[in-house]
Amino acid sequence: MLRPFALHRPGTAEEACGLLARLGDDAVPYAGGTELLLLMKLGLLRPRHLIDVKRVAGFDAITDGARLTLGAAVTHRAVERSPLVGRHCALLAAVARHVANVRVRNVGTVGGNLAFADPHSDLATLFLTLDATVELVSGRGRRELPLTDFVRGAWETARAPDELLASVRLTPWPSGTAATYVKFGVHERPTLGVALALCRAAAGARVGEARLAIGCVDARPARVPAAEARLTGVAVAELEDVAGAVAEAAAAAVDPADDLHGSADYKRAMVAVFVRRALRIAAARARGDVAPAARFPHAVVA
């Protein structure tokens, strides 16, 4: 059951920002509601105004160009089925296909997912490997922030109360990149997520740049530069040789807490396990193996 609120349906970002500026803490942006309405039903959030951003022009658009732009109100379902996403970043479509369940995907949005900064989110982790930036608009203007700066902690972002998350921009990997996203966990939301992209050097047989992000384990997802460095320049055929070191570096980089998802040391150990597995999958993809995707219990491989 929800408490009463006023519903605003601005058609432009300017209008939406004006409302946010005017209503201050009494207002929250609203899109799919899959997170917001849950918290409101529990009485944990009691906004008096909801600003529906789904009708804001352009917010439901997926566009390409130098970068791939996902409007804040694009649903997971739209990401999953978008030809543009399929062309520029097929892995993103595959990850979107496994977010929560079909009903949440039909309604939940990319913007809502990022703006809530739930630590147990798939998208933010993957986006870190796509050099994601978010676009924030307000009456004061526009700014673009790297996703790493936007997500500050668990349920905490850099969005000011009068700002609106307008879109997220991704830099698709160069062609020939082998990538995977693996998540693991028994509960409704994942215990850990590993996103790994191996971009090939010009010569093709070696990893040019590697990107590895770990999510869900810490309060916010993060890239693991130490592990990425271990992968740079490694021949595709020899990736297995560095798997142990990469996994160790990733495990050393996280700082989990004990909770229902598991103890800190278990989660740290699982980071190592799934980084190793992700590397093996990505390496196989880099080699062009067409073997069926690996399967692990309680895990999803995208």
């Binding site: 509601g33 309405l37 849950l38 039903k41 379902r77 079909v102 009903r103 949440v104 039909n106 309604v107």
Partner: peptide, 8 residues
């Protein structure tokens, strides 16, 4: 489209 009517 399937939705959760309890949260819609």
């Amino acid at each position: 489209l399937a939705v959760s009517a309890c949260t819609y």
